[in-house]
Design a protein around this nucleic acid. Structure first.
Lengths: 228, 228
DNA sequence: GGAAATTGAGAGGAACGTTGCCGCATCCGG
DNA sequence: CCGGATGCGGCAACGTTCCTCTCAATTTCC
């Protein structure tokens, strides 16, 4: 499950790899297996009603392992949440990269990214692997992460940011996107606005459960608020 | 503690609506004073490095009162945070309403709202009353609130939403803002995007501490991402 | 087969939110 | 002026949660 990509600039050692790397080669398989069981249990609990407020005891019980093992592989609950966050960002970026590749024009790829990621960030969506994605629960942890440890947050978001920035760059080269703002800034604003847009309905108090409003959101982002 | 509002529209019964009960019981004055001391202590602690992770003990000590009194006026730490959140939204809405009134055209009022609220939501800003506003700390609680208690969150945000929705309506009547999206939805998206835009820099990993990027953000929101 | 590492089970400590108890002060009707 | 009621500070205690530690059993490796 943990695959290393020997890509050029992406040599960021993820938390999961670090946890696994605590054991050496022969025992590495067992260690990976145990770490995976903790991560799976964490994802299941994140999908629950309590969000990220689960107990380490729950993780331990659900993983069928012991507290002793947990603290051997993770420095604490924070490290587990960080590993879950990185893992989720990583698989989300992979999924989006595949979906985006279906589009021909750069603008369409950009729109596809925003729409699909918007849907992922709405609570109650499932991935293609039928595993429920607790994006909204992890968004809360992500926000906490951004305020308390900005550098780690930036590092965790890198896969998504890199992908989106490349899409923005291509769309700009196609002449479809404004170029008076650096593409990295554009990517940051887009990602943030998309990720937290699920809260817009809650803020305004309107349910709007009929459609998810992904296309409407894209229209607002792409064409702006100004009257046509 | 919970009073119903017989008023027409603006009578949102806030958690701290003990105010203006001036000529009533003298005991009420004392109670108000004590509540205010707890709230002030809470605001000071929110401005600290720990954010909303402060201890009720700290609140009690800083307010110079007792634990016994705290639990007489608040059902728990959650209720205190909720009261702080509502209070902050209330005074922010009042402040923005005054600033917005300085502009003549409806579009300028809308821009002024977005730019000023954007600045408020950046960490490290101060209000005109020289009291530090822990908006970023409370944004985290606000997000948690939106996921766990959407109705209470919606109610707490009402002052800001009502003001912004009115500004959008006026700008739409002026023909400056698109009308194919209900103004309440537009207000929700605008408020959310503005409030969390401070995280865009953290996500993209770019410091960007030179300017706060409020005008750039407004440009992106107003004119969109599409190439001119 | 035996040494060494790893794991499971549980005890327990520290921090925090919350409640209960006691004693004192202040208020209030008679 | 007074006696109960309420408010309030100080303090200890309880439950929960995160985390550390010990000890024995098991597995792995040579």
């Amino acid at each position: 499950m943990a695959m290393d990509q020997p890509g050029p600039a992406d040599a960021a050692a993820s938390r999961r790899d670090l946890a696994v790397a605590r054991s050496l080669d022969p025992a590495r398989v067992r260690a990976e297996k145990r770490v995976k069981r903790f991560l799976d249990a964490g994802f299941e609990l994140l999908a629950g009603p309590s969000g990220s407020d689960f107990t380490v005891q729950e993780v331990v019980e659900r993983s069928g392992q012991s507290l002793r093992s947990f603290y051997q592989y993770f420095d604490g609950k924070y490290e587990l949440l960080l590993a879950l966050f990185e893992e989720l960002v990583r698989v989300t970026a992979e999924q989006l990269e595949q979906q985006v590749a279906e589009e021909q024009r750069a603008v369409d790829r950009l729109q596809r990214f925003v729409v699909e990621y918007h849907r992922l960030c709405r609570p109650g969506t499932k991935t293609r692997s039928a595993r429920r994605v607790p994006t909204s629960a992890l968004a809360q942890f992500g926000q906490q992460l951004m305020t308390t440890h900005p550098e780690e947050a930036s590092r965790a978001f890198r896969p998504l940011v890199s992908l989106l920035e490349e899409l923005v760059r291509q769309a700009a080269a196609e002449g479809a996107v404004r170029t008076d703002v650096p593409s990295i800034r554009l990517a940051g604003v887009l990602l943030q606005a998309t990720m937290f847009n699920a809260f817009a309905g809650t803020i305004s108090g309107s349910p709007g459960a009929a459609d998810d409003g992904a296309e409407e959101f894209w229209s607002l982002i792409f064409e702006g608020v100004r009257a046509g």
